[in-house]
Design a protein around this nucleic acid. Structure first.
Lengths: 344, 344
DNA sequence: CATTCTCGTCGACGCGCGTCGACGATGCGC
DNA sequence: GCGCATCGTCGACGCGCGTCGACGAGAATG
């Protein structure tokens, strides 16, 4: 608990000289600097974060607002976190985790009015996101992971889910599939305007139209049982479906189980792929899932980079759209020939 | 950005009166309090966190030290995080996420010397954990999630992995299994003294001894391929094994795949169960895994509770051992009768 | 009625640091 | 030799709040 004054006394200089030695804002002679540094080492001095935050303009703390959603938390969410934390650390900032509900705007306002943080990273961004107005009001810099419908003046990092949807359909079309199921999240989530879902679906539909494929959209809660229900409906209504593009990890597992129960093997009879699922969970299911998944770690790190730039007053918005790679694993294969698709 | 002085001016009182109205440390007349409160509301006043931290003794910030380990990050790790964050929030504290490597003690010392946090929660605790000495040195209160070999004077929340191991073996023994495989993490991790592994294995061995079961221990990296390798070894060396207790989610998936490739079905020919896997990931694999898993959410919340008590000067250590429930799902069944166990 | 206490409020100070203005000591050009 | 800019250092102040001692006004006590 040594203070700046202690260091100054031991080094035989004034307190402000210690500050300048630390910040480099004004020149310090090599000899003085050395005396100060050894004094700091001897005392084990670490500047007090609160005094810094009070006196200075920067606080060295950024917050990650990660509202808890209806969707379960996948391992990939964790990667964002980890990467952001890591990057913040190497940039000399602390990362605060705010996990209060997205609709508790009063709480968000309170938190961001405390002057605690230099800036905020918003996760789970909706196409219309009320949090943005709050943050603009309080004047706290922020960047989005994801993006809203209108992004003028906003900084964000997002993966291009529309492109990802097209990529997925392209892969399946190339394998000869002609009729596709898009397995979405709950209708509620889509209505709320959860960007990835909205854009992913659009990409799938656009590419299907372009390639002349039929597409069926099914909503399901993020539960295994919901996936089984979907399979039942699809089996009756559109038995010609031979491939699934899923944005619902949990439901997909149920869907696959149900298909298997009906004697349809993946990928021989049915190809499935996952949009946005983390690579780690894609390999937990059997067969390992072909995915188009955003590079979560990279995005988390980029978000921190952008935020720090914005905080430093980069001026103007920083917008970045990252395209996700197609990762072919064991769950997709050539479409079955006629006999198989006419089964049931 | 209204300050206490602004509120005081508007309410027609002194600045210190505003403070006392906020903290309740000294009595304030109802009338004055009301004037102050409406002034605060009108100005949208929020006390500055840094000034509070500087002037007061408490900072309102706690840190979660979550070192990145060799093991992958499971969904259950996320639950700790979420629960801790949630509980911190409802207790009026901020949660800081420190994800630097466990062996970077200098960094940990620096972080905890900044006077930023009231206390620290340590995750991924080893049986001998060097971080503890650092924290004791810097005088920052802390609690463990997990525990060390010697816990005198330390506060912790841990799940009773030894008990969990016994529970698992009991379940399998009741189903008639007589020869068991314990699928561990890498040998390195066990040597490092990662508590759950060490204690889980002990529990398994103790209960096997008590019930007269044979047990084989295999180490594997947290990768699917490693699990396949283990299966190969086990198939040759101890073909009589009919049940697996796993503390390695990733390897277990590989093991199950390999078994299936060899024509051994789960759970008809082979029962498997997972120790410590989160419930969500247990249901992603097929068949859904029987587990004995610690209530991550509860533990995360309890850790925060304990820490806040310790910070408040509860005096003495707070130690809590939580027993995890056995959750029977589809991956365990009665041991196959003789013909099946003599296969190969 | 005088005295002591309690209640409600005020002013002052300190927490540890960033930063501004000032100032002595140099170095330079003329 | 003198004026002037530059370098290195110092003292003072302010950031916004918690808290301590003091103090006036009543209430309680004799």
């Amino acid at each position: 608990m040594a203070t700046r004054a202690d260091v100054a006394r031991l080094a035989g200089v004034s307190a402000s000289t210690v500050s300048y030695a630390l910040s480099g804002v004004r020149p310090i002679s090599a000899e003085t600097r050395e005396r100060i540094e050894s004094a700091m080492a001897e005392l084990g001095y670490t500047p007090n974060a609160f005094a810094r935050g009070l006196a200075g303009s920067r606080t060295g703390i950024i917050a990650l607002h990660f509202p808890f959603t209806q969707r379960g938390l996948n391992a990939s969410e964790f990667e964002y976190l980890h990467a952001a934390s890591e990057r913040a650390r190497t940039s000399g900032s602390h990362l605060l985790l705010w996990m209060n509900p997205a609709d508790d705007l009063a709480e968000l306002r309170r938190l961001s009015s405390q002057g605690l943080v230099d800036g905020v990273i918003l996760m789970e961004v909706q196409t219309e996101d009320a949090r943005i107005a709050v943050l603009q009001e309080t004047g706290v810099p922020f960047v989005l992971i994801g993006r809203t419908a209108d992004t003028t003046g906003l900084s964000y990092v997002d993966s291009d889910f529309e492109e990802m949807g097209r990529l997925a359909v392209g892969h399946l079309a190339d394998l000869g599939h002609r009729s596709i199921l898009f397995l979405s999240q709950s209708e509620q989530l889509a209505k709320d305007g959860y960007g990835p879902i909205v854009r992913g679906q659009r990409g799938v539909e656009v590419e299907c139209a372009a390639r002349g494929l039929a597409v069926r959209v099914e909503h399901a809660a993020a539960r295994i049982g919901a996936g089984r229900d979907v399979h039942e409906r699809v089996r009756h209504d559109v038995p010609e479906v031979t491939a699934v593009v899923s944005m619902n990890e949990q439901a997909l597992v149920g869907f696959i189980e149900a298909a298997r129960d009906q004697g349809r093997a993946v990928p021989a009879d049915l190809s499935v792929m996952s949009l946005g699922a983390g690579d780690s969970s894609a390999e937990l299911v059997q067969p390992a899932l072909t995915t188009v998944s955003p590079p979560a770690a990279e995005m988390g790190a980029r978000a921190v980079d952008h935020l720090l730039k914005v905080v430093a007053g980069a001026g103007g918005e920083i917008q970045e759209l990252i395209t996700a790679p197609l990762h072919v694993r064991a769950s997709t294969a050539a479409a079955p020939s006629a006999p198989s698709s006419s089964r049931e």
